[in-house]
Amino acid sequence: MTAAQMILSSALWLALVVLGLSFLLTVWRVIKGPTLPDRVVALDMLVGIVIGFIALIAIRTGFTLYIDIAISLGLVGFLATVAFARFILAQGRGDETAEKEASKVIPAPPLAPKRKRASSRKPGAGPAVSGKAKK
């Protein structure tokens, strides 16, 4: 192993560890994030970190075709963020406070109260409806 390969290999390992750490921190924000825009911002950041992973794999394996995959992933991430912004505009904020109160009253899964708006039209069963009744 020449000196150049050794430098590159150790830098790649260190960068993979650092990227994995930042990936875990961002995933923690996605899970914990108190509001919906927090989660969307963290998902956007997650796409950026995955692009970094793809670049590191491209250097490791020598396939420069991975750059095209990174570019297309960036395009998909941008479109997803724009769509999420439209979704936040369309959905409003009323569900968010309800979600907080519902999760205080009963330990429901965090995704369940978000469907409250759809499920409030037809009074079916579910943790969101019972949380509203308790309030």
Binding site: L14, A15, V18, L19, L25, R29, M45, I49, A55
Partner: peptide, 21 residues
């Protein structure tokens, strides 16, 4: 130079993740 770019890029990603947290 490649190692420097990789490490600086990973450091920026880590700073962004810490800021996000």
């Amino acid at each position: 130079l490649t190692a420097l770019l990789i490490l600086v890029g990973a450091g920026f990603a880590l700073v962004a993740a810490v800021g996000l947290t």
